[in-house]
Design a protein around this nucleic acid. Structure first.
Lengths: 209, 209
DNA sequence: CCTACCGATCGGTAGG
DNA sequence: CCTACCGATCGGTAGG
């Protein structure tokens, strides 16, 4: 079997029924970036991964920056599917906060992207690199903060949390839980750290009860 | 003035009385890595920054990995000087926790390294790259966790925090505060987020009082 | 989507 | 510490 047919076989493996080539490329891009970062994501590596030439990729994305932007979009879609959406199905307030965190911990534990948490890494990596990609990462963060803020405000409103709690402080704390779980899990590779993270979340939501 | 004398002038600027060339190189390396990451730190850029040839750097560090390891060491020394040591001078227990966080927030606000928080970024960046550099970053994290654990245990012992508090959970939470402050500050560039972080820390340490 | 190429930069080495 | 070089890879383009 020649190289060409191997490439096609790999692409077929990556592609699901009815899924576009662009979508298969972006799933691979998110996976590579979850290991090597958004800067470390190279067009050559990505081309090899999906069994395509570099110029084939340039037909889909005109530049590395456009590829990075599309990759951030795809990562946001995955996060919404796997973490945000399940949380929205839980009862309003504290249960949504807990469901979001639980969905996130499972997303981490399952190593859904191959490497670590895409947005934890992207925030640290792109934070010091002004430009459209940083803005896209920041916009995702703002969206997640908004979601958490709504859950927290609702929890206070429904007296699941004391009335003197501050939603903004809660958003900061839950962001911290996400980042600490991500960093700790990625460095240790030990699912036990997620047990500790779950305890922290549970206790935090039972405070003042 | 020729290029050669410009280079020497730059090196002189970077060097303080009695400071070794190696030390000046490493300070520049930490600064560059705080912006571009430990992978993004290139020997060519670093050589230009300190006004030296690439091969001049190879006389000090035999490989990029050795340079990265030395850079992690230097960053740890700076963190210990600016954050850990001041905390150790505070009264034992909760005041040490608060002093460490305050020193960290000031370290961030002052933009002490030029870019963001070296170890927040390094943990996310190297977490997915097995090898000696990741181990060095993990070892620093373990050391900081140990320090926080001691402060937390002491706070509980002295009844500054309730006896049902778990030091390990507190370590996780404070790690989260550090990471959330770092990510938030780097993305927004707004010192106001550190005000929120300070409130969270203060409230957390007054819980159960 | 491909082959074939571009200049720039990467980490690293030879020889002084 | 330097100049001068190595092969590999980077992002990107020409032409089909």
């Amino acid at each position: 079997m020649g190289e060409a047919s191997e490439r096609k076989a790999r692409l077929r493996r990556l592609r699901v029924e009815g899924e576009s080539t662009r979508s298969a490329i972006l799933r691979a891009a998110v996976s590579l970036a979850s290991v090597d970062g958004l800067e470390g994501l190279s067009i050559g590596n990505l081309a090899a991964e999906v069994g395509m030439s570099k110029s084939g990729l340039y037909a889909h994305f005109g530049s590395k920056e456009e590829l990075q932007l599309a990759t951030v979009e795809e990562a946001a879609r995955i996060f919404d599917d796997e973490v945000s959406r399940p949380a929205l199905s839980a009862p309003a307030g504290a249960p949504q906060l807990e469901a979001l965190m639980e969905a996130y911990f499972e997303h981490l534990e399952r190593r859904a992207l191959g490497g670590g948490c895409f947005f934890s890494s992207a925030a640290m990596e792109m934070g010091t690199r002004p430009g459209p990609v940083k803005e896209a990462v920041a916009a995702f963060g703002a969206g997640l903060d908004g979601l958490l803020h709504g859950f927290a405000a609702s929890a206070i409103e429904q007296h699941q949390l004391p009335p003197d709690e501050d939603p903004e402080q809660l958003v900061f704390e839950f962001n911290g839980f996400i980042l600490a779980a991500s960093a700790s899990f990625i460095l240790s590779g030990d699912p036990a750290v997620l047990g500790l993270a779950r305890q922290v979340v549970r206790r935090r939501l039972r405070r003042g009860r």
